[in-house]
Design a protein around this nucleic acid. Structure first.
Lengths: 138, 138
DNA sequence: GTTTATGCAAATTCTTTGCAATACT
DNA sequence: AGTATTGCAAAGAATTTGCATAAAC
């Protein structure tokens, strides 16, 4: 089981209340969160600006990765196997148009793609949109 | 050859200076553009707010589609075969980390993906990032 | 005690809305 | 002429920066 302390300790980052609160939000809500989402969740425990800075720092240290979205505001999710400055989030993202949540589908392999000559790919991101298993039942 | 007048005529939209200017920007720059990009390109020919409204209208009429991006500001590109209210942009997007441009790779087929039971997909978007053919040469 | 992170204030950028004036058919 | 689009003003979000205070090691 991942804990905020574990994650911060591994990355040799100071264990602060704000950082723990941000990580705990991602653990509790299993879907991707934006800065405004976090601001609402944490309005009593930490400042708006602090959240921006924590998100930046977590991106750099491979604790969070960016999640593609077509709504304008950037979303983030916990990394599974990212190292500093290099992300290895080769997985799919699924956004449900009913509940609005975006989840990482880690277990599904990324498909093979043949690019034209001369293209060099470092990172790839995929966003599927539709109705998730939970929402379809209701 | 596509022209702004053709596109607007087909969609039965009024042919205005601003709309032509927006479409011409997309034709001239072959990569995806954001509202701020357009605002710079068109600062003498049309108003900031007008650009937002044109982008909305073009999305609805299938003239433009959203392009996934991890930088926060939404990007748009010309649709190839979209109809009103339903987009068929099942193609890849490639963002070059050197020149910063995102292009549509229409000729590459979207790979097949097997989702878990109960997921229903309406739309899918893919963003590859790396170095494009042009930038790699230099 | 030293260093790093946080909070607050303020500025900047991005986006939306209302309404009167203008341009299009 | 009639209708749809635009421009302007202004408000509301989202994001960034600087600096003094507070928390972590």
């Amino acid at each position: 089981m991942v804990s905020a302390e574990n994650i911060l300790g591994e990355k040799k980052l100071r264990i602060t209340q704000s950082r723990k609160a941000v990580i705990d939000s991602f653990i509790a809500n299993r879907h991707a969160l934006s800065q405004p989402d976090l601001e609402k969740l944490l309005e009593n425990s930490c400042d708006r600006v602090t959240i921006y800075r924590i998100l930046d720092s977590f991106l750099q240290h491979g604790i969070l990765h960016k999640v593609p979205d077509l709504e304008g505001t950037q979303k983030y999710a916990l990394c599974d196997s990212c190292s500093d400055h290099h992300h290895h989030d080769e997985h799919l993202h699924f956004k449900c148009t009913v509940c609005g949540h975006t989840e990482c589908l880690d277990e599904i392999p990324m498909p093979q793609i043949n690019l034209p000559e001369g293209y060099q790919v470092d990172e790839w991101n995929m966003l599927l949109q539709g109705i998730c298993g939970d929402c379809e039942k209701s």
